[in-house]
């Protein structure tokens, strides 16, 4: 049964809904860029003000999920396909970790010798948040706009890399990582498995590669100072 309130809200034509999906991607990416580039440069480390664009982005994502009738299970907060997703991620994650270790060894850095700080301990949660925004939202909207497959995977990866500028090496790494994670998500949408892979690669990077090479993984305005 359609309630009176629902009947008063006209649905959008399909082609408009796809354009809308692209707009949603741009809107969320813009919020992240505002936080990274504008807020950090204008107000430094004021967490309260940085929270405004982040909350706006998460508010939009939550509202959009409700509007499109997506459940937590649809988004990827689920366990039924965790093992299947881990199987898909195992090879690329192991290869990425080995490549990072090999790069560290080649550059003469001490392997897994970095200090694990409180920042690193929160990495799994941070990775889950990033994977939710990247795949649970942007990937799903990219699939709406461009369909499942290479086009939407590339769009997701480009957005992910864009958010890591102006750190050139980090942007390149996240472009590759973004493609792999987006492709895996399209086959097995499980955010916990993606976050695990993301956290493992990030911790290996932080502990093996000299912070100078990736400028302590800094992005946005923070990259410069």
């Amino acid at each position: 049964m359609v309630t009176e309130t629902e009947s008063m809200q006209p649905s959008l034509p399909e082609h408009t809904a796809r354009t809308l999906a692209l707009w949603e991607i741009v809107s969320v990416a813009t919020s992240c860029l505002i936080a990274e580039w504008v807020v950090l440069s204008f107000v430094g480390r004021s967490k309260l003000i940085i929270a405004i664009p982040i909350l706006l982005a998460f508010g939009l994502m939550a509202f959009s999920h409700v509007e499109r009738g997506e459940t937590l299970n649809d988004i990827g907060f689920r366990l039924d396909n965790f093992v299947a997703s881990c199987r898909l991620l195992l090879l690329p994650t192991v290869v990425a970790v080995l490549l990072v270790v090999a790069a560290g060894w080649f550059m003469g850095h001490a392997i897994f010798a970095g200090h694990i700080g409180s920042r690193h301990l929160s990495l799994p949660l941070w990775a889950l948040l990033q994977q939710y925004a990247l795949n649970g939202f942007i990937n799903r909207r990219a699939q709406l706009a461009l369909g499942k497959g290479m086009k939407s995977v590339i769009l997701v990866a480009v957005v992910f890399a864009l958010l890591h500028l102006p750190n050139p090496l980090l942007a390149a790494v996240t472009l590759i990582g973004g493609m792999i994670w987006a492709a895996v998500y399209q086959r097995q949408p499980n955010l916990f498995a993606l976050a695990l892979s993301h956290a493992l690669v990030s911790i290996t990077l932080a502990m093996t590669i000299s912070p100078n090479l990736f400028n302590s993984l800094r992005v946005g305005f923070k990259y410069f100072g």
Binding site: P10, S27, E67
Partner: peptide, 23 residues
Amino acid sequence: FDNLMKTPSTTLVHVLIGKSIAE
């Protein structure tokens, strides 16, 4: 994939415009 989702109402457009104005 897109058939698994509901087509959103125009409220989503209004929310997007509101968010842009707020930012």
